[in-house]
Amino acid sequence: MKNPFDHLDKVLEHSIRLRIMVVLAANPSYDYSGMKDLLEVTDGNLATHLKTLEREKYLLVTKSFVDRKPNTRYRITDRGRSALKRHMEAMAEVVRQSKHPQ
C-alpha cells in the first residue's frame, strides 16, 4: 500500500457506521435494540446510518415479529465484509506508517 489513505472507505470513515459494521462482522446477525444498547447512540442517529449502509448494500435487513413486537435484524453482506476488511487494513497501515516513516 503506497498511500493507505486512498484505501480508506468513504462510507466507513464515519465512526458509527464503522462500529455498526464491526458488530455485524463479529455476529451472525444483530437486532436493532441490541445494536442501540451496545453503541449507545440515539434512534435517529442509528437509523440514518443503518439506512446508509443498507443503501450501499453493506448489510441486509430482515423485519419480522417476535411476540407480536416488530423485530428488525441486520446481517452483513459479502460486499460489506470485504469493504470493512479493506478499510481496517488501511487503518492499520496508516498506524504502521506513522510509526515507521519511510
Binding site: L18, R19, V23, A25, A26, L38, M91, A92, V95
Partner: peptide, 13 residues
C-alpha cells in the same frame, strides 16, 4: 480507534 473496535467486537458477542 482500532483498539476500541477490538473491544467493541468482543463486547458484542
Amino acid at each position: 480507534d482500532l483498539a476500541s473496535i477490538r473491544r467493541l467486537m468482543e463486547r458484542s458477542v
